[in-house]
């Protein structure tokens, strides 16, 4: 088992780096770094939430982008209604206050996850993979059909949501908002994974029948896990809409689901911090490769094949040493 000292030695410098990144960006006079790392933090939130399903729950969902999209569209739609001055459904004036929009985005994503999860979790294995994918695509096409919110082209937001006491349109404040959100999600996920609920989810992932003989119904536990993961993705989506001040159907697209999966596996399946490393590695790699060739996916594809077939532990496992335990 990885020792606490080893973990601290690896994780502490990373957190210090993340906390001090704005200084580096200022020193290098490179504001792009801030926006790049904001994106990394946001994708890390989505990847951590997906890992609850993939790594801890053993549920291979290929539709996680759906909940990112729902979160982003909640923010976008609420914002849009305040700008055009026409209430949503004739009653709700919309909102541009992050203290309202973010919780609503999380709730909306959780609601969608509840309905979709209730249907998908009736199946398992290959069926589950295909069905989560299909439902995500269904939302993708629905978003394309939302003509009043930009349809195929998506919808630009002319400003970020406001946050009391914080100038969110300043990239520096927004970066820290993302960092705090990620830390919060990591802390919540840590508590959950080691709770009694988390124990059952982990137990059911490899041996659902045995869990049943202990008098526990895996379906309801998995559904709750699916909803929690969906809510996390919803938060990521809401932040992403704010970060880019833009929403588009692409946020629902299954390639985003696939990329989130890649981040989880690259970073370390069934570890909490692994997906954060995976998100950073994936986005930075994309950034670097794109500098050299526009056909970077041509190289990334085969690399991915080799990595998933031969390297099992992920970056976190490499750094911490034995990635044997689920922690």
């Amino acid at each position: 088992m990885a020792s606490i000292a080893r973990k601290t030695a690896v994780l502490l410098p990373i957190f210090v780096f993340l906390a001090a990144l704005p200084l580096l960006a200022a020193y290098l006079d490179n504001p792009y770094l801030l926006s790049l790392f904001s994106r990394i933090l946001i994708f890390a939130i989505a990847a951590v939430s997906l890992d609850l399903l993939l790594g801890y729950g053993g549920l291979v969902s290929l539709g996680h982008a759906a909940f990112v999209g729902v979160g982003a569209y909640t923010v976008g739609i609420l914002f849009h209604h305040t700008t055009i001055g026409e209430p949503l459904l004739g009653i709700f004036a919309g909102s541009e206050n992050a203290l309202i929009t973010l919780p609503l985005a999380v709730l909306a994503a959780a609601g969608f996850a509840l309905v979709i999860g209730a249907m998908c979790l009736r199946t398992s294995g290959m069926h589950f993979i295909m069905i989560t994918l299909a439902f995500a695509q269904m939302l993708y096409y629905t978003a394309i059909g939302l003509e009043q919110y930009g349809g195929d082209d998506g919808l630009p937001l002319y400003a970020r949501n406001t946050f009391p006491g914080l100038d969110t349109n300043n990239d520096l404040s927004f970066y820290y908002l993302c960092l705090v959100s990620l830390l919060l999600i990591l802390f919540l996920a840590h508590r959950m994974v080691h709770s009694r609920f988390g124990l059952i989810i982990r137990g059911a992932s490899h041996n659902p029948d045995r869990i049943q003989t202990l008098g526990v119904n895996p379906y309801t536990h998995r559904l709750v896990c699916f909803v929690i993961a969906g809510a996390g993705a919803g938060l990521a989506g809401a932040l992403l809409a704010n970060q880019s001040t833009y929403i588009s159907p692409g946020l629902f697209h299954w390639t985003l689901s696939g990329e989130l999966m890649v981040m989880v596996l690259l970073g370390g399946l069934g570890t909490l911090f692994g997906p954060v490393l995976g998100a950073a590695a994936f986005l930075l790699l994309e950034e670097v490769l794109a500098m050299y060739t526009e056909h970077w996916m041509f190289y990334l594809g085969p690399v991915l094949v080799v990595v998933v077939i031969f390297a099992r532990k992920g970056l976190y496992g490499l750094l911490i040493g034995s990635g044997k335990n689920h922690d």
Partner: peptide, 17 residues
């Protein structure tokens, strides 16, 4: 299945590009 999904996802990226 997760390994299969990701490896074949890699193949898609490769062939599309």
């Amino acid at each position: 299945h997760l390994t299969q999904v990701l490896a074949t996802f890699g193949l898609i990226l490769f062939f599309n590009e």
